[in-house]
Design a protein around this nucleic acid. Structure first.
Length: 417
RNA sequence: CGGGGUGUAGCAUAAUGGUAGUGUACGCGGUUUGGGACCGUGUGGCCCGGGUUCGAUUCCCGGCUCCCCGACCA
């Protein structure tokens, strides 16, 4: 992508009404635009990051048997009354509205009821189980207070997978597989090091549920961590009895701020019973399906990466989710020969499948470098007059600052993979 | 939802009871060209409603907005 073609621009200064580091940097870089409190647009660069994150999530979900689908955001109140989750007393984040033709409608804040209802039409025997549908879809939550940039918004994408199993064993097997998949996802996103599978209270069906908490000063949550024992718990699970079960004592745990990047939960038969999702077991009896839910917010994950990995100059994207792998910076491009040389390497790299953002703007070097640091692609490649004379490109790794001067062939080699 | 702030140009800011200045960004001309250069010139602005006043961006009332703390939450 030629930078002159992008409709977005960088900002020298962050808007005064934005305090969170993730949003400040993403807005300055032209990745996102704030439309109102708790509602952000994802601009071309930002959307590309989200798509890259989603691709990783899809790979890992598909690998454990996930099947992607898509459900509406408009939800029928009647369904929610069946599970007793329609009233504002039961659920305080509803956005509710009405159909012009008559009838109450809610904007989806989760999808257990809707999907359970769907599954009643397709599950009738233990032979139909287990099944693991998921989607990456828009959720609406009427939060009292949006905050922390893109970390806590009123409209957000969620990857929500729901498991439908015939037996506890089936359920537990998938639950563990999904927990492992989640850790793989966070590793691939570049935040695996700081992310803990955290024990939380399990509700009515299981002793524990699990949150995936990324240690970060910008976090809104608090977890208690033993880094050496690799155990983390949230406040609900601080009772000595629970801790003993997990093999840690209170004084081994350190209180840390964290960001909840994922959550997995056993639901038992609460929704299958409420909505009549049963199957025939091998004895011919009707039995309710055992369910679980598994969520990740891709945009929140994106914000977490920015908060965690950015430096004083700007964003630092892990290669796996960077919108472009290479930021090609053309210098001295008022000289037609140099510009042709820069254009040439842009075309050549792109042809080889390397994603390149090409700064072909008529701007001074300082501004281009500053913008390049802010935007945070993994590699900056400089094509300049000096480089053309020596036949070499300067390649700088954003994360480390490590610099190499490479010939065209060496460059192709470096990025061929 | 309780408490505290805030609102001036795309962005960041200043001053002011007599319609607003600066930086940056943007347009034009010129000098520059490896870390946000410089000269000249130009375009662009007081959240909404009501009140006080000869006159309100400024003072008062109400509303809205956004931010922060708390509560709540993926």
């Amino acid at each position: 992508m030629r930078q002159t073609q992008l409709f977005t621009k960088t900002l020298r200064e962050a808007p005064a009404n934005e305090v969170a580091k993730n949003a400040q940097l993403l807005i300055r870089g032209g990745y996102i635009f704030k439309n109102m409190a708790g509602a952000y647009s994802f601009l071309p660069l930002g959307l590309q990051v989200v798509e890259n994150i989603n691709a990783i999530i899809r790979e890992e979900m598909d690998a454990i048997g996930g099947q992607e689908m898509h459900m509406p955001s408009l939800q029928d109140a009647a369904l929610w009354k069946q599970s007793d989750r329609w009233s504002d007393e039961a659920v305080d984040v509803w956005f509710k509205t009405e159909l012009k033709a008559g009838g109450e409608i809610g904007l989806a804040w989760t999808h257990e009821e809707v999907l359970t209802d769907i599954m009643t039409h397709y599950v009738s025997s233990y032979k139909d189980l287990p099944k693991f549908p998921y989607q990456i879809q828009t959720k609406f939550r009427n939060e009292m207070r949006a905050k922390s940039g893109i970390m806590r918004t009123r409209e957000f994408w969620m990857k929500d997978l729901y498991s439908f199993c015939a037996t506890e064993e089936q359920h537990n097997e998938f639950y563990e597989a999904c927990a492992d998949a989640y850790m793989r996802i966070f590793k691939r996103l570049g935040i695996g090091q700081q992310t803990y599978k955290t024990f939380a209270s399990g509700g009515a069906f299981t002793k524990f549920s699990h949150e995936f908490q990324t240690l970060a000063e910008a976090g809104e949550d608090v977890v208690y961590v033993s880094e050496e024992k690799n155990v983390a718990v949230n406040e609900e699970v601080l009772a000595e009895a629970d801790l003993a079960e997990l093999g840690v004592s209170k004084d081994e745990l350190e209180k840390r701020k964290s960001i909840e990047v994922g959550n997995i939960f056993s639901l038992g038969t609460k929704f299958s019973e409420a909505l009549g999702l049963t199957f025939k077991n091998d004895a011919g009896e009707d039995v309710p399906v055992i369910m679980g839910s598994y969520g990740i917010g891709p945009a929140r994950a994106m914000g977490t990466v920015v908060d965690l990995l950015a430096d004083e100059k700007g964003i630092v994207w892990p290669a796996a989710i960077a919108p472009y792998r290479v930021h090609l910076v053309g210098l001295n491009t008022d000289d037609a020969a140099v510009r042709d040389w820069a254009d040439g390497i842009y075309t050549a790299l792109t042809k080889r499948g390397v994603t390149v953002l090409y700064d072909d703007r008529d701007a001074r070097p300082g501004e281009k470098f500053a913008d390049s640091d802010l935007l945070g692609m993994p590699y900056r490649v400089v094509a300049s007059r000096k480089g053309k004379e020596s036949g070499r490109f300067e390649v700088v790794e954003r994360a480390t600052g490590e610099m190499h001067e490479l010939t065209e062939d060496e460059l192709f080699n470096k990025f061929s993979e």
